[in-house]
Simulated scan of single mutants.
Amino acid sequence: MPYPEGHKIKVRGRIIESAAKAFRTNGIRDISVPFIMKGAGLTHGGFYSHFDNKEQLVSETCRYAISDTISLLQKAAEKEAGEPKIDAVIDFYLSPYHRDHTEMGCILPALSSEISRLSEEVRQVFTRDLQRMIDFIADLAEINKSIGSAVLSMMVGTLVLARSVNDPNFSDSLLESGKQQAKGLIKTNQ
């Protein structure tokens, strides 16, 4: 019995979602194809009917994960009626919830240090998607891309540090400082 129309696309999507969750949580290097396929509810033998290699999966996962993060941040912005939308985005991005739920969070803090050691193809995809994220921040805040880059860099760096420390109070204070500084940078450059 043949698979229904769109079956292969749905399976490919499940694999990418499984990879995004795994990469966000554990990085790229320590995650195997069998682990990703198991997370998608599949055997690893079927991987190569969807992807040429793990690097192709990494590229597509980066694209998916950045789009997913932008969508999540857009929803956070739409929920807030009273404050500037960019403030709602910063508040969500630098929240304890986002810090503590790496499996659904932004892929930039999780993968940036590993991407530099991957293929030019993966780095090219990552670069384009990072630029999309900067554009999103700059457009939402009504600032130029240079300031948007600085704000996003500040947010990503703050989240990396807040996830790295073992003192919950210090972690929370890093998040608060990051929020204040990112919002301040925007306000002085609008």
Rank of each mutant, 00 (worst) to 15 (best):
L174N: 00
F136Y: 15
L42G: 01
D100M: 03
I90C: 07
K21Y: 00
D167T: 07
P96T: 14
Q56H: 10
T43R: 14
M154S: 05
D172Y: 04
I107K: 00
L108P: 00
L152Y: 05
E55Y: 04
L140T: 15
A162G: 11
M155Q: 10
N166I: 07
E120N: 12
T188W: 08
L42C: 07
F51S: 08
G6Y: 12
I15A: 08
A76I: 11
T69M: 00
S171N: 05
A88N: 08
I36A: 07
A19K: 03
R14Y: 08
A150G: 13
K38Y: 07
M133R: 06
L118I: 02
E78M: 14
K10W: 10
S32A: 09
E103G: 02
Y93G: 07
S177Y: 11
R12N: 06
L130F: 07
D135N: 13
V122Q: 13
F126L: 08
I143L: 09
P4F: 11
T188L: 14
F35E: 13
L152S: 11
P2T: 10
G105A: 10
A76E: 14
C106W: 00
S153K: 08
I66G: 00
K8V: 11
Q124L: 09
Y3K: 15
E103R: 02
K38W: 03
S59V: 00
L174W: 07
E55R: 01
L108Y: 02
S119N: 05
L42H: 06
S164I: 02
S119V: 04
A77W: 11
M37Q: 10
D135V: 09
P109M: 00
G82M: 14
F47W: 07
